[in-house]
Amino acid sequence: MKYKLIFLLMLTSSVIFFSVLVGDVELFFILLLITYLLLYSLLGPYFNRRIKSNLDIALYLGIGVFTVIVFQKVLEILSR
């Protein structure tokens, strides 16, 4: 339980911190994804298999959105 609580507390505090400081949605999303990856790699081994597979879905979705952001940026640079 305590690892889940740490995970949630750190994620929530980083969400509040980044949303106040970052004035760009894409940058916010990337920072959130990095925080999520960091927390997942640190605390993931303490979660059971079912929770991990559900967290993986969130991770893959995040990576998917990240890929879309990267493609958008690439297209933006190429169109200049």
């Binding site: 949630l8 994620l11 970052v22 959130l32």
Partner: peptide, 27 residues
């Protein structure tokens, strides 16, 4: 308002993870 959009995305993610953590009973 970018801050509200950011906070919205963040809250959806936190809410989703909170839900993930609650669906582990009875396994």
């Amino acid at each position: 308002m970018v801050y509200l959009i950011n906070l919205g995305v963040g809250l959806v993610v936190v809410g989703w993870i909170l839900l993930i953590f609650t669906f582990e009973r009875y396994i």
